[in-house]
C-alpha cells in the first residue's frame, strides 16, 4: 500500500489532473474576481396583514383569534408597521372591569412598532410562527372544514389530480400545473396536504 505522499506525487504527474485542478480553482475566482455587490436582494414577502388576510380568507372567520395571536401580534417576525392613530380604543366599563377595544392596526409593543420595515424576509422566527399557525388552523375542525369546503372538496374526496389542484389553488390561485412533489406523495390525508401548502413559502410572496 502506497503512502499518501507517494499517491499525491503519482497523481501530480498526470497532466490532466493539473488541468482539472486549475479549472476548479480558477473559475470561481474569475467569476467573483473584482466584482463588488452594492445591493441586497430580500425575498419580497407579504407582511403580517397580508399573511393574516390570506389565511383568514382560506380558513374563515373562526381563524381570527389564532391569526391575531400568532401572526398579527408578531410585528418583528413579519413586518408591517402599526398605525398609532388608526387604533380604535376606548376603555369601557363592563361590570366593574375595564375592557380595552383595539383594532388589528394597534401597536402591540409600543410606538416603535410604527417604524418597522414594511416586510421581513423569511427567517426562523417567521417560519416558526407560521408553522404553528398552520398546525392550529388545520387541527381546529371549523377552520379545517371551512378550507375544505372553500376548495370544493369533502374530507373523503379522492386524491385525484383535479382535487389536488383545487386544494393547491387555495394558496396558489394562478397555478396551472400540479407540483411533482404533490403528485408523488402516497395516499396523504387532506389535513397533511393543507398543512404543507399552508407552511410553504411561495404563496407568501405577493
Amino acid at each position: 500500500m502506497l503512502s499518501l505522499k507517494k499517491r499525491i506525487l503519482k497523481i501530480q504527474k498526470d497532466r490532466n489532473f493539473f488541468l482539472v485542478m486549475t479549472l476548479l480553482l480558477c473559475s470561481p475566482l474569475a467569476v467573483y474576481g473584482n466584482s463588488k455587490k452594492i445591493y441586497r436582494a430580500d425575498r419580497r414577502m407579504g407582511d403580517r396583514f397580508y399573511i393574516a388576510s390570506r389565511l383568514q380568507r382560506i380558513f374563515g372567520a373562526e381563524s381570527s383569534k389564532t391569526l391575531e395571536e400568532n401572526i398579527l401580534s408578531k410585528v418583528r417576525a413579519f413586518g408591517g408597521a402599526c398605525s398609532p392613530y388608526n387604533v380604535i380604543s376606548e376603555f369601557q366599563k363592563e361590570g366593574k372591569k375595564r375592557i380595552n377595544h383595539h383594532t388589528k392596526y394597534r401597536c402591540y409593543s409600543g410606538l416603535a412598532d410604527s417604524k418597522v420595515e414594511p416586510f421581513i424576509d423569511a427567517g426562523i422566527l417567521r417560519t416558526g410562527h407560521l408553522h404553528k399557525t398552520c398546525d392550529l388552523l388545520v387541527a381546529k375542525q371549523q377552520t379545517y372544514q371551512f378550507a375544505i369546503n372553500l376548495a370544493g372538496l369533502g374530507s373523503n374526496s379522492a386524491k385525484s389530480d383535479s382535487n389536488l389542484k383545487k386544494m393547491l389553488r387555495l394558496f396558489y390561485p394562478h397555478s396551472k400545473k400540479l407540483p411533482l412533489a404533490l403528485k408523488k406523495v402516497k395516499n396523504p390525508s387532506w389535513k397533511l396536504i393543507l398543512s404543507s401548502l399552508c407552511k410553504s413559502d411561495y404563496w407568501q410572496i405577493p
Binding site: S35, K37, I38, D42, M45, D121
Partner: peptide, 16 residues
C-alpha cells in the same frame, strides 16, 4: 425587495 445602497458611486464604478 431589492435594496440598493446609495453612496458616492464615482470612485468604484469599475469594481461593481
Amino acid at each position: 425587495g431589492i435594496d440598493v445602497a446609495v453612496e458616492d458611486y464615482s470612485t468604484q464604478l469599475k469594481s461593481y
